[in-house]
């Protein structure tokens, strides 16, 4: 019994220590003074985590918008309320689905790649040799990736929403025959820019920070063997998915739960 309590305590201390280490790591890398070249390094990472994730995010957004419209229509038509389809599609996308699904896709597509890339750099001593040349790898390797992820995911989320709403339009208006005017009109009268679009963006920024943070920290902190890299990559996807879903509940409760 005492053994169990002891091991629980030890594990708690380990978790706390890892949290502290990663927070320190975040602070050191995020607030490194940007160099002249930093801008270009950031641009390269934007291309890697942003532009190259665009296709999968857009295609998923289109299909999710189409499915939402199809499902929503079959439910709403029973109440004779199919004209409210636009409102339903837009609100569920903007408030929930775009930030969450885009973040999950991002964790799988870009987060795992970041972990593996930094992990491989560590395994081949590139990080150590950079330190020996007198360049801080936190600033040179980690910071551009962190900032690129932080900017790219909200942009991807916007794209996801736009494409999703368009997908809903295709199915709802073009196929199922909802009036175009009421699709957009109902949407416009029920979507609040600050309350819905803005809060969705805040969610997305929080997810962006958390997912990229987990990804680069797992890469930087892993054991530099092939097994260590594969484990860390898995951890990135698992931890970031759990963090995104858990944080989503908390943020939703704060933003839309009416506790204010």
């Amino acid at each position: 019994m005492i053994q169990r309590v002891l091991s629980l305590g030890r594990r708690g201390c380990d978790v706390l220590e890892a949290l502290g280490r990663s927070t320190l790591f975040l602070a050191q890398s995020a607030f490194g003074v940007p160099s002249r070249e930093g801008w270009y390094l950031w641009l390269r990472q934007m291309h890697f985590v942003g532009v190259l994730s665009l296709a999968i995010v857009m295609v998923s957004g289109l299909f999710i918008g189409m499915v939402l419209a199809l499902q929503g229509y079959t439910i709403l038509v029973d109440f004779g309320a199919e004209q409210a389809l636009g409102q339903m599609v837009a609100l569920s996308l903007l408030r929930e689905l775009s930030p969450v699904v885009a973040a999950l896709l991002f964790a799988g597509r870009a987060g795992s790649a970041l972990t593996a890339e930094i992990g491989l750099m560590k395994a081949t001593e590139q990080l150590t040799s950079m330190e020996m040349i007198g360049v801080d790898p936190l600033r040179r390797i980690v910071a551009p990736r962190l900032w690129a992820g932080f900017v790219a995911l909200p942009l991807l989320t916007i794209g996801f929403s736009v494409v999703g709403i368009y997908g809903g339009y295709l199915v709802g208006v073009e196929w199922l025959g909802v009036f175009e005017g009421s699709y957009w009109g109902n949407m416009q009268s029920s979507v609040a820019f600050i309350g819905d679009v803005g809060n969705g963006m805040i969610k997305s920024m929080v997810f962006a920070l958390v997912v990229t943070w987990i990804a680069v920290f797992q890469g930087y902190d892993l054991i530099p063997t092939s097994e260590g890299i594969s484990r860390a990559t898995t951890r990135t996807v698992v931890y970031s998915s759990l963090a995104v879903l858990g944080l989503d509940f908390v943020l939703t409760a704060v933003m839309f739960g009416g506790f204010s």
């Binding site: 909200p154 916007i158 929403s161 709403i165 416009q188 979507v191 820019f193 819905d196 679009v197």
Partner: peptide, 15 residues
């Protein structure tokens, strides 16, 4: 595209 998407969400979606 991100900026244009934001404009779309502002003008067309939230009116």
């Amino acid at each position: 595209a991100g900026v244009l998407g934001m404009l779309f969400l502002g003008l067309r979606v939230s009116g």
